[in-house]
Design a binder for these strands. Structure first.
Lengths: 343, 343
DNA sequence: CTGAAAGCGCTAACAG
DNA sequence: CTGTTAGCGCTTTCAG
């Protein structure tokens, strides 16, 4: 009745040992490439493995040694920036025995997904959700190697990989101010949340923006707008913004998804040529000629690659925390330019 | 020296049993909600669990029972259609004890990722890569529940969830032919591969397109173009196509990513208004006003949700294979319209 | 309702 | 170089 009756049990190390006429330990050594195996024995064992179609059980192995699995916790796959990160991570893992598994977070927090990975005995975890509690993560990092991606906290037990959000934002503000923009709106997911989370990249961008505008001095107007997290909500927010005059001459979105929402609103109001738009992440869409979005390239692939490399180092024995900073670069495209003359 | 020295060992079921003053079996029952536990014992055990911050090891559990993990093998995360599928799958899993893990395929094939999932004792696997060998999959399905997503084969041991690619294509051709288009180019990843893979959705779309064009009769020109798999390669192919006259009046891409590449080429040649473009998948970008791509909605979320539901049924004991077909719907947007008059 | 005992498949020490 | 032994943490009979 149960499914077990309908499913073939797969071969175990015991079966292989029997078939090859050797001990289980010998088989174990062969499959791990451990030292101390004669060529003859290796050949016999490999033949038996082939014959029986044997595959080692990672679960059983995890009970003793390593699972050779690295976990990547991600907030939501809709975010294109993640694609870059995953690509980089895969690249860093190519040629190693390690396998990458991705656990998408259920809610915004990501605790569930991270715990799920830890419960599954992964050898290391890359965390992306920027809102997990630092103390909680610190505790987790006492049990399993952890690399936090994107958030700027210094920790005793886990590593971090971040983009230089202040430098990235400064490139944007320098660029826009240099073009002559005086009234600039910054779109961020949630201004209140950002005000309370110092290590959050969006919080840093928000503050760096404010600082730059203040430094720019008299006559410049900085405005902050909380848009929510989705493209649709950003679109609605910008639509509302365009409902009243005067319009700002430039919009700076905290990430490309918000920028896309803003662009939709601009297109609808036929304002795309009069209002400059800058995003953050330089996701693949930004480069599309129909979008042509000026954006800050965070080099996500490098981040993912570094994160995995650090995890591997930690698994290898390193215990001192490391903090890697990636320098972003502004990529100028058609969505931005000088403010209209009459403004 | 080793990492073990620096890492806290987490609490085991033994520790909890000791702390609560009960047997390990009792603790096991409590954490599994198994029958036959007194309220008093449950309370004691739960207190100890809380106290010790105990989390059951999935690896150890997998050795005997279920891992409560479902694996999703995906070809590449860059494909936006996957996002819909994953969302649907997550939705179907909400409220259950199961956790979803995603294994991105290394190459185009996906064998590695699928095997990695199987090795990790997942309780079921959803396979998306359309090019894995049917016989190979059949064998795998003898060991673990499998649902194949997108490919139209009937199998004895695994379930399938597919969109009705013939119906979807027919909607596109009916629409374009009805508009008066006579010279239509179909963009597909690789015409040769598709010719040899009967169950591949792109192969079905290709054939359905040819059939429809033939049925439309004399004077109509169907043209097939292999573009490669990426947006960039599709863009290059269409750029080359536009290098020579006469231009087709409509382009039908086998998926939205190719359509985006085509759109880029059209925009560059200022041909977006004179050449109609239709995609397939109705990914979120298609709806963006700056893109406004006519596309076939495959209802990916429903597919993901159904795939997981079927897996759960199989885990529950079902053994007869099922075949679920989702009916797609054409969504008309600005990228398509009647052919220009002079054509 | 509770506990004791026997493994699940594998690896790590060690003895030969 | 090879085999034996003792678990890893958990679930699952099966007696009490």
């Amino acid at each position: 009745m149960s499914q077990a009756s309908s499913r073939r049990r797969s071969a175990t190390i015991q079966d292989v040992a029997r078939a090859a006429g050797v001990s289980r330990a010998a088989v174990s050594k062969v499959i791990r490439d451990a030292a101390g195996v004669s060529p003859a024995m290796r050949a016999k064992v490999n033949a038996a493995i082939e014959e029986l179609n044997y595959r080692p059980s990672v679960a059983a192995r995890s009970l003793r040694g390593a699972s050779y699995t690295l976990g990547l916790e991600v907030p939501h796959l809709g975010n294109r920036f993640l694609t870059q990160i995953v690509d980089g991570a895969m690249q860093a893992l190519a040629g190693t025995r390690y396998q990458l598994v991705i656990a998408p977070a259920d809610g915004r927090q990501g605790y569930g997904a991270i715990e799920a990975l830890a419960d599954r005995q992964v050898d290391g975890i890359v965390v992306i959700s920027p809102r997990v509690d630092a103390a909680w993560l610190e505790r987790l990092a006492g049990t399993v190697p952890v690399v936090m991606l994107g958030r700027h906290d210094r920790s005793a037990h886990y590593d971090t990989v971040v983009g230089d959000d202040v430098a990235g934002t400064r490139q944007v503000t320098d660029y826009l101010l240099g073009l002559g923009h005086r009234h600039i709106v910054h779109l961020t997911e949630d201004a209140a949340v950002n005000a309370s989370q110092a290590g959050n990249p969006h919080a840093l961008r928000l503050r760096a923006f404010q600082d730059a505008m203040e430094a720019a001095g008299r006559g410049h107007r900085a405005q902050i707008l909380g848009t929510g997290q989705t493209e649709a909500s950003a679109r609605a927010t910008v639509t509302a913004l365009l409902g009243e005059r005067p319009w700002p001459t430039a919009l700076f979105a905290s990430h490309d998804q918000l920028a896309l929402g803003a662009l939709a609103a601009l297109v609808e109001h036929d304002a795309a040529r009069s209002v400059s738009l800058v995003g953050y992440d330089n996701t693949d869409l930004a480069a599309h000629p129909a979008i042509s979005l000026t954006s800050v390239d965070q080099r996500g692939a490098e981040m993912g690659q570094r994160a995995v490399a650090m995890l591997l180092e930690r698994i290898g024995g390193r215990t001192e925390p490391q903090h890697h900073v990636v320098t972003p670069a502004l990529v100028v495209r058609g969505s931005s330019g000088p403010p209209p003359l009459e403004a």
